[in-house]
Every structure is written in structure tokens, then in C-alpha cells.
Amino acid sequence: MNIRIARSLATLALSAMFTATLASPAAAHRQWMLPSATVLSGDDVWVNVDAAVSNDLFYFEHQPMRLNNVKALAPDGSEAKIENALTARYRSTFDVHLTQKGTYKIASVADGMMGSYDLNGKTERLPRGTTAATLAQAVPAGATNVKTTTTSSRNEIFVTVGEPTTTALAPTNNGLELVPVTHPNDLIAGEPATFQFLLDGKPAADLPVTVIPGGIRYRDQLNQIDLKTGADGKVTITWPTAGMYWLNVTTGRGMGPDAAAAPGRVASYVATLEVLAP
């Protein structure tokens, strides 16, 4: 019984994450990772990361973020180990031993497919977990009007030991990605920061960018900053105060009537960024 409840909760959490990160920036639940520090000095350096899905930023009060898809890239581009991973009731946590100098990128990346088909006069949805490779098996014989949308979600943080570097930040050209114009570990309150967003490697023009400062629980206003990427995919943010910020970029839903002809594409991007006081 308990196990069954836990499982259904986990499923709910996953679907909540999916909705929150892919469907609408206004959805209630927000997925985030929160590093113990983003700017580090010293010789034996570790970062500890909390990961959760919640309403308020950055309070773990709803669901843990699953760590299955979390990977850490070291400054030289190699993969660094995720250590001491634990998923508790409201949050997950893990460590990364930062053995190199420079910037690490820690990201949870998931690709998937959603869609529907018509069979015997009824519209059915593709089962969860369908991928391009399993699509042929997922669509039964005789199905018509098959519509598919591929999904990509990326949730990431950056941490730097010593001087910021950009090797680990090289885009993979899949989904929505942040390309630094301003380095994401060199953010100061009052200074404008510019990032370029790419969708599958091309400038992601005209997409909504949502920026929300942490600490929501103890204030009345959300203080959300709404921006849009330009034709070159770039957006410039001036940070009002120091603190941790949640940044979210999403494409449109991709499943509307426009998506009928061509396969749709939806992607979401989340980053937690630390802004320091001048």
C-alpha cells in the first residue's frame, strides 16, 4: 500500500515536472537545483547541490527532483562524478568534488516525445516514455493522423573554482541551451548580463524568458522579470539585487493546429544563477 502510494506520487511528480517545465512558465511547480556555492576558492573544493520541485524558490516543500539524468561536466569537458546522491521526501541532494580549476556545468537533461494518433474514431495519446526509436512500436497498425512532438528539457547550474572558463559550457546543439556572453558565474547586482539561447543549435528568437529571485516565501510580490530573446537569441538581464535567481526559457506548446503537418518541437530551459553584491 505504502509502496503503491509512493509510486503514484512519483508519477505525479514526474508529470508535474513535465507540465511545469514544458507547458507553461506560469505553471505552479518549479524545478530547480541549488548549489552550496557558485564562486569557489581553495585546493580541495566540493559543491553540494539540493534539487527539488516546488512552488516557492528555493524551498524544498513539494517533491524531490529525480537525479537519474543529472550529469556534471568538468572544466576540461570530461564528465565528473556525482557523489553521495540521496533522494529524500522533499529534496534530492548530491556532491561534486571539484578537482579542476575552472567552470563546471551540472545539468539534468531529458529528451522525449509526446503525440497522438487516431484509431477507430478515437484520438489516443502516445504512451509516456515514447522516443523516436520506439515510435513505430507505440503506434498501432491502422492508426491515422499521427502527430508527434519531440521534447527536450534542460535544468542546469554552473560553479567555478578560480577563473571562469567556458569549455564545459559548449552547446550540444540539442534542446534549449545557454551560451554565455556574460559568464554565468560572473554576475553582479546592478550589472547587465547577456546570455544567448540556442534551440537545437540555432539562435532561439523571440522566446519568453522568466527570471524570479529566490526568497519568495518571505515577500508578498513575486518580483518576476519577464523578458524576450531577440532575433539573435540574446537577452540582457540587469539584476536588481544580489541573490539566487531562477531563470526559465520555454518554446511554445508546439501541439496546436500548427503542429498538424510537421512534427512539433518543445523545449524548456531552467538555470539557477547566483548574483553577488558589488
Partner: peptide
């Protein structure tokens, strides 16, 4: 182990 450098940042 040069631990004092941890707080230089």
C-alpha cells in the same frame, strides 16, 4: 593543506 584559501572568495 592550504585550507585557508577556501575563504579567499
Amino acid at each position: 593543506d592550504n585550507e585557508g584559501t577556501k575563504w579567499l572568495r
